[in-house]
Structure formats: C-alpha cells, structure tokens
C-alpha cells in the first residue's frame, strides 16, 4: 500500500530524464537570451561627451543670439539654438517627417525642409507640410560656471527662460530628445 503511493508520487514528480531535459532546454534558452542581450549591447554605438548624443556646451548666456533673432546653427551636433520670447530652445536639426535637414529662411522667418517642404516656426512649432509633429527639442540646462551646478533646467522641451547671470553656461543634453507635439 505504502509502496504504491510512493510510486505514484514518483510518477507525478519530475523524473531524472525529464529534469535533465528541462534543465538543458532551459539553459539553452538562457544562453540564447544572453547571446541576444550581449549582441545588442555590443552593437549599440558608444558616444563620448561632447559628441552628438552627449552634453554640449553652446556658450555663455551673454553669447546667446538676441531674443527674436535668427536661430543659430550648430552643424556638428545637429541642432539649432533659438532664442525666442519665452527663452532658449535647442531644436533637433532633423525634420520630423523623414530625417532631412531643414534650413532657416531668413526672408520668410521660418524653417523649411528641402525634401518635402514641411515648415516650422522659429520655436519649432509646426506650420504646414507632411511632417507629423512639431520639431523635436533637447533638454536645455543653465549651469553656474564656478560651482558647475544646474541653476535652471527645461526637461519638457519648453523654452528655458534666460537666467540673469551672464556668465552662466547653457548646455544641451543631446542624449535626451523630446518629441514635438503632433498636430491635429
């Protein structure tokens, strides 16, 4: 009687063969997953500070373009710094439509994309064209030059009001891109 039940229990439990099968299948699965993870990490490109993708110093507050004047191009890091009524903005230089580089049209006072004709205001707001949303922005910080502490920061892509300290450094974190607001 007792012998039979223990045998039944043995049948219900995982026997040695099954256990080994499961064990090696599981390890194979684990190996595949880790291989995928390792390949992913290996293939992911590296950035250095100051390169595109890192934090970039765009100059002191006193060096900023005048409020309402034409945006300034930073070609090597793919951004436009625009000093609007509301404050400083760092616009990603790439059109939200299909990745072309738009240009500032001095005469018309707006950004126009050469590929498909999307147009944007100086603050990145969508005017017309096939682009699905307004221009993308980056996180902008104002940093105290002596203490290296962040005085003011705009993390949601809204304009950063210009700090009073003319020596404060304006930094753009190109690793943190905020998508423009889609238009209706």
């Amino acid at each position: 009687m007792t012998a039979e039940t223990s045998l039944d229990q043995k049948k219900l439990a995982v026997n040695r063969r099954e256990f080994l099968n499961i064990a090696w299948l599981a390890s194979l699965g684990f190996f595949t997953i880790s291989l995928t993870g390792v390949s992913y990490l290996f293939a992911l490109p590296r950035f250095r500070e100051g390169e595109f993708g890192g934090v970039i110093n765009v100059g002191k507050v006193s060096e900023l373009p005048e409020t309402g004047s034409s945006p300034v191009n930073y070609p090597e890091v793919k951004l436009w710094v625009s000093n609007t009524e509301g404050g400083v903005m760092a616009l990603y230089k790439v059109c939200t439509h299909l990745g072309c580089l738009y240009n500032w049209r001095e005469q018309e006072g707006k950004f126009v994309c050469p590929c498909h004709g999307s147009q944007f205001q100086a603050d990145g707001e969508y005017i017309k064209g096939p682009a699905p949303r307004s221009l993308d922005r980056f996180v902008v910080q104002a940093v105290d030059p002596s203490t290296q502490q962040v005085i003011a920061e705009s993390t949601d892509g809204s304009p950063l009001p210009v700090p009073d300290n003319p020596d404060a450094e304006i930094r753009v974190d190109t690793g943190k891109r905020i998508q423009g607001i889609p238009h209706g």
Binding site: P45, F47, F52, T174
Partner: peptide
C-alpha cells in the same frame, strides 16, 4: 541606432 552606428 544599431543600424546607423550613431545618431546619424
């Protein structure tokens, strides 16, 4: 990113 090897 993986395809382009950098943001651009």
């Amino acid at each position: 990113l993986i395809l382009r090897g950098a943001p651009d």
